[in-house]
Nucleic acid binder design. Structure first.
Length: 107
DNA sequence: ACAGTGACTACAT
DNA sequence: AATGTAGCCACTG
């Protein structure tokens, strides 16, 4: 499907302020549960396809900021999260389990 | 049309 | 606990 990326961006756009989710959760919400890698790749392209989405609210299943290198600066992702009150320690989100937002449950 | 890529995950050592 | 391996599949050149 040509618009798989778009689907990903629609989910990402629904992540509430101050909350985060994982690539796998997004893939699961799309019904493509085993395509978590594609979600990550979609985010890689997001800066040119949908530069306005909160890509910084998407991390891996451990709450690790694996995508930080793809932002303008390596520290941009952590910075944006900090602005939302999310604390990041050593590239990992503090209280990730509590901040996690499941698009299948709340979306 | 075909092969390579990869912001992931789950399972196995 | 810490690595290593194997599926996964839309998109790009």
């Amino acid at each position: 499907m040509r618009d798989f990326y778009i689907r990903v961006y629609e989910i990402v756009d629904q992540i509430p302020y101050g909350r985060v989710t994982s690539y796998g959760a997004i893939a699961n919400a799309l019904g493509a549960g085993k395509s978590s890698r594609l979600v990550g790749i979609a985010m890689n392209y997001s800066h040119q396809i949908a530069p306005n989405i909160p890509a910084h609210r998407v991390v891996n299943r451990n709450g690790l900021l694996t995508g930080r290198h793809h932002f303008i600066y390596d520290h941009t992702m952590e910075e944006l999260l900090s602005f939302e009150g999310i604390r990041v320690l050593d590239n990992q989100i503090v209280d990730f389990k509590r901040l996690f937002w499941d698009p299948l449950v709340d979306g």
